[in-house]
């Protein structure tokens, strides 16, 4: 396993006490695998990825549990050692490529520098590698684009350039945090296509953080659903979408308006909204909004196997798992 995360807990000081934002998150990521971490705002998906990158720098924050990357423990790693790892073995791309690039240098120069920080090669060699990378990322006329400043590029080109920079040192792990959220759908489709191709071309594993169940379905081998800082469900994407084991996963999928098939008279929606971390219930965090909530839900449910998934819900153990989802035919 490339990455093994065990009981990762991130607590931040809020109102004078440490509040767990993310609690006991566990998952593994294999070589050349794409794992999706999906959740709504405040679910803790970005905090999880920042903790793996060692980028939680809030004073008084506490990160506990274990993050083993290629067998090496990252929790508690010295900042210096973390810096050597980031950019070379683990790279990250964000929603807004403008945050990854400085506006004062050309895109090509910034990618050249990134390469030269980690490897002793000449400027000319670095540039030819940069141009090749940009070309691989589907950038038309990569030589010209390398000579341009970030603001001169379209959103899609900037995102491709950022992915090129992230891949410049052949990282084993790419963490992509909402990489397509700011893009239009036709450009999003291009970038997702690119991400799917990375493992083939570069042998990279990808941790994809997103709020969009559609993006997960089309991109990820396995999926981890977070709700209020806790794992609700995890498993192979196909099984998880065909027969979700957690009522939250099922309700979330149901609330997405379908693009094909009959139009529902009303969209099934989830009543209420997720609890703030400081107000998370002691039992199942989804219980207050769950159609299946009962007495047993007053105790925080452990992750248990349900089919090929792991589900933090008492229903499978009670012998009444959720039914498979009805999905309308895709063809019109």
């Amino acid at each position: 396993m490339l990455l093994v995360v065990r009981d990762l807990t991130v607590a931040l000081p809020i109102g004078g006490r440490l509040v767990p934002i993310v609690e006991s998150v566990s998952f593994t990521l294999g070589a050349r695998e794409i794992l999706g971490i999906v959740g709504e705002s405040g679910s803790g998906k970005s905090v999880t990825s920042l903790a793996i990158m060692g980028l939680i720098d809030v004073p008084g924050a506490r990160v506990s549990g274990s993050v083993r990357f290629r067998g090496r423990e990252l929790v508690g790693l010295a900042p210096r050692a973390y810096r050597a790892l980031r950019g070379r073995e683990i790279a990250m791309i964000f929603q807004d490529p403008m945050t990854a690039f400085t506006p004062v240098y050309t895109v090509g120069r910034q990618i050249d520098e990134q390469i030269r920080v980690h490897q002793k090669i000449s400027r000319a060699d670095a540039r030819s590698r940069t141009v090749r990378l940009l070309g691989d990322m589907g950038v038309p006329d990569p030589e010209r684009v390398a000579g341009r400043y970030p603001h001169q590029l379209s959103g899609g080109l900037r995102q491709r350039a950022m992915i090129a920079m992230a891949l410049s040192c052949n990282p084993a792990l790419l963490i992509a945090d909402e990489p397509t959220t700011a893009l239009d759908v036709t450009v999003q489709a291009q970038i997702l296509d690119l991400l799917r191709g990375l493992r083939r071309e570069y042998g990279s594993s990808v941790l994809l953080i997103t709020h969009d169940m559609g993006v997960v379905a089309e991109t990820c081998d396995r999926t981890l659903v977070l709700y209020s800082g806790l794992v609700a469900e995890r498993g192979p994407t196909g099984a998880l979408f065909a027969q979700p084991g957690h009522p939250y996963t099922a309700a979330l999928l149901d609330s997405i308006p379908p693009l094909h098939g009959p139009r529902p008279a009303r969209l099934p929606s989830i009543p209420g909204s997720p609890p703030a971390p400081a107000e998370r219930p002691a039992g199942c965090p989804f219980a207050p909004r769950c159609a299946y909530a009962h007495e047993a839900c007053a105790v925080r449910p452990a992750l248990v196997a349900s089919g090929v998934q792991d589900v933090a819900c008492v229903l499978p153990a009670e012998g009444r798992p959720l039914p498979p989802r009805f999905v309308a035919e895709m063809s019109a």
Partner: peptide, 13 residues
């Protein structure tokens, strides 16, 4: 047609 095809749908194809 392209716009519709580009929408990522929550269905594993």
């Amino acid at each position: 047609a392209a716009l519709i095809a580009a929408v990522p749908e929550p269905v594993v194809r």
